[in-house]
Structure formats: C-alpha cells, structure tokens
Design a protein around this nucleic acid. Structure first.
Length: 265
DNA sequence: CTAGATGTTAAGGT
DNA sequence: CACCTTAACATCTA
C-alpha cells in the first residue's frame, strides 16, 4: 500500500487523531522492526511526550516528540497507522502501540515486517544518511526536472529510485509512465528535454491527484491506469489489452499501443 | 505447493 | 560512477 500518496494520507490521519496528545505509554511488540535503537529506547523516547508535528519525505513519516527527538516510520509494503479504542478495532499485526491520554491507542501495524521504525534527532540528517533524493511531490518543478535529468537508466527504474526522487513506488511509476505515453523500458537518456519536462510535470500531477484523493485507488480518475488495471485490464484510452512485464523484478503494467514500442527485448 | 504482492538493501557484475 | 541483476528479508493469499 504505502507509496508517497499513502504516506501523505497517513500523515493527515495522524494530524486528525493522535497529534498533540500525551503518550502515556509506548509498547514495542516487535523489536525486529526497530532500527538503530532498542525497542525500549524507542518506547522511552516516546513515553511522556506528545506527537507535536509531522513531516513527510518520500515514503518516510517523521513525528516530532515534544521538544525531543523525532520518531521515523517507514511502512514497507504492508504498514499503516491505526487509531482505535475498542479491542475489536485493534488491527492484526501491531508492532508498536502508543497509549494516548484520551484513552485511545495509536498502532503501527505491519503485517510483513518490511517496514521499520526508529528515532532520530534530525530528519534532515536522516534523509541525507539514507541518500534520499528530493521528495517527488514537494520538490518544485525545476528541482524535480533536474533530478530526473541527472539519470539515464530505464524510465521505470529511474522513477522508482529513491535516490533520484523519493516517494514513487511500483504502482505510481506505472501510472506516471502511462500518463506520459512512455514505455517503461525506454531510457531516460534517449528522451528529449521536452519529454523529460513532461515526465517531471506529470509526476507532480499524478502524485498531487492521488494525495487529494487520500490515495484511495477507487477515487482516482477513470482514465488512470491504476483503476483500469483492476476493472478491465484494458487501456482506458484505447481499449488495448494491457501488457505486463518485469522491470527490475517488479511487475510493470503498460499499454503497448499508447506507450510506444521497444525494439526487440 | 508455488508464485507473487504496494518496500529496501547488500553484493557482485558491467 | 551509474546502472543492472539477484537474492534476501517476512507473511499471507490466489
């Protein structure tokens, strides 16, 4: 689930639920997802503080704990936050649980445990250490264009490379390429400046659109590949059957007619 | 039973 | 250096 639009939604979700509440207790139920600190260390950093502000960079969500350190959350492929009160509403795979002053709880749930949580003094430094590029949505147009222009590999790989631009995952990379009419295996260095400019603009547009709709795939426009792929598996523009190939081990959907053709493969 | 699923990372090669 | 491939991580489902 979690790509940039999903994490943007999680950020707003936190803002409307747990933000500004005292954390009475923090429980790490799975040490395995905690990074660079012990479970107790993380719990101790949160206990007695409140979540005061949030910040997102790519797929990472930072939560300021009072005047102290920041909690960093990465959701892997199956992670999400959940604010709940009744035990029946508790999600299935809670890895960290915050008990809040209003009696509700905030869970970090992560079924496949590919996500991680940690503590950092400085989100900027954290982003730098991880080598992340600019946030794919928050970057201004020139910055995004420049970040893409520096690369030369396959378009799909460039978009998914978090060191180029942070936040785009498998699903939205396909969507962006579809909206641009570009084949996922084309190389960035064979595009004209104009095409790279278009790619950059569409990247911003697609992400903004998904964020506006709370990353709910059912609410995306009908001409989006992401919706068509589930409904009919046909191109929403020309009706051709969508094709799927592997690019960098990831399943990639595209319209063979609208997104050009490659020479032999 | 197997393959594959929205994520990253390490290791090795070109 | 920039890029590619493969394998690995953990868990569930089609």
């Amino acid at each position: 689930m979690p790509e940039l639009p999903d994490v943007a939604y999680f950020e707003r979700y936190l803002a409307s639920t747990a933000l500004h509440q005292l954390i009475r207790e923090a429980e790490v139920r799975d040490e395995g997802i905690v990074e660079d600190i012990s479970g107790e260390g993380l719990a101790a950093a949160a206990r007695g503080r409140s979540m005061e502000q949030t910040r997102r960079h790519g797929k990472n969500l930072f939560v300021a704990l009072g005047n102290g350190p920041w909690l960093v959350l990465h959701f892997g492929m199956t992670g999400f936050p959940r604010y709940f009160r009744r035990p029946e509403s508790r999600p299935e795979h809670v890895r960290i649980l915050f008990h809040l002053e209003d009696g509700w709880k905030l869970a970090y749930d992560c079924q496949r445990r590919l996500g991680h949580a940690g503590i950092t003094q400085d989100p900027g430094g954290y982003i730098e250490r991880k080598g992340l590029g600019s946030d794919a949505l928050l970057a201004d147009e020139d910055e995004r264009y420049a970040a893409l222009k520096r690369r030369r590999g396959r378009l799909k790989s460039v978009l998914m490379n978090q060191e180029a631009l942070a936040g785009i995952g498998n699903l939205y990379a396909d969507e962006i390429l579809f909206q641009c009419g570009l084949h996922p295996l084309r190389r960035l260095d064979e595009l004209s400046d104009r095409q790279v400019r278009r790619l950059s603009e569409v990247t911003g547009d697609v992400l903004a659109c998904a964020v506006e709709r709370n990353a709910d795939r059912d609410l995306l426009p009908g001409h989006y590949l992401l919706t068509a792929r589930r409904r009919s598996n046909c191109c929403p523009r020309c009706g051709t059957d969508l094709e799927d190939i592997k690019v960098g081990q990831r399943t990639t959907y595209f319209c063979p007619r609208c997104q050009g053709r490659m020479d032999a493969d």
